[in-house]
């Protein structure tokens, strides 16, 4: 456990994992262009691990497909995430993990915005501000302790 030895949320509610995306014949047709969609972004971040529990963000409903917006032509991706409790001190860390994962995996053309779902966190505006500030994100990533924790969250133990 990265911070302290007491769990903030000792008994989080667990949700079922959604099934893998169904692959249709169209997906194998090289001539059809597949646009980026909600589900694709969701698949990217659903397996990020929670910093506190050995569970994924999907299992805790921190990220949900409905809270993701993709505008392919405008090159915008907007993600709302929901901390499990309103005073969660990990919110910024979770937000950062999502940002870093998308930074590494999405094409550079996309502008990624990660924000707390409105009304789900006490310090939502502060967290949002931190996550939106490029300088602060870059500075955070240079903190060796922090980047270690983020890498642990992102590391995908299971393929697919």
């Amino acid at each position: 456990m990265p911070f302290g030895d007491k769990l903030e949320n000792q008994n989080p509610t667990l949700y079922l994992k959604s099934a893998d995306r169904f692959i249709i014949d169209q997906d194998y047709d090289d001539s059809i262009v597949d646009e980026f969609d909600q589900r694709e972004i969701f698949d990217l971040i659903r397996n990020i691990n929670d910093p506190e529990h050995p569970l994924t963000l999907e299992q805790l409903h921190v990220v949900q497909p409905e809270l993701i917006t993709v505008e392919n032509e405008k090159n915008n991706v907007h993600i709302n995430f929901t901390p499990t409790i309103p005073h969660c001190s990990m919110a910024t860390l979770i937000g950062l993990s999502i940002r870093v994962k998308l930074l590494r995996c999405l094409p550079a053309r996309f502008k990624v915005q990660v924000e707390v779902t409105p009304g789900t966190h006490n310090a939502a505006s502060q967290v949002n501000k931190q996550l939106a500030d490029k300088e602060r994100v870059a500075a955070a990533l240079e903190n060796s302790h922090l980047i270690k924790v983020i890498n642990q969250c992102i590391e995908n133990k299971k393929r697919g």
Binding site: V33, D34, I147
Partner: peptide, 23 residues
């Protein structure tokens, strides 16, 4: 242009990023 390719590419890129990253 194909999503299935992108999935592989994203996973692959992520793993190369983590190659020497502190974990």
């Amino acid at each position: 242009r194909k999503r299935l390719v992108r999935i592989e590419a994203m996973e692959c890129r992520s793993s190369w990023f983590l190659l020497d990253a502190p974990i």
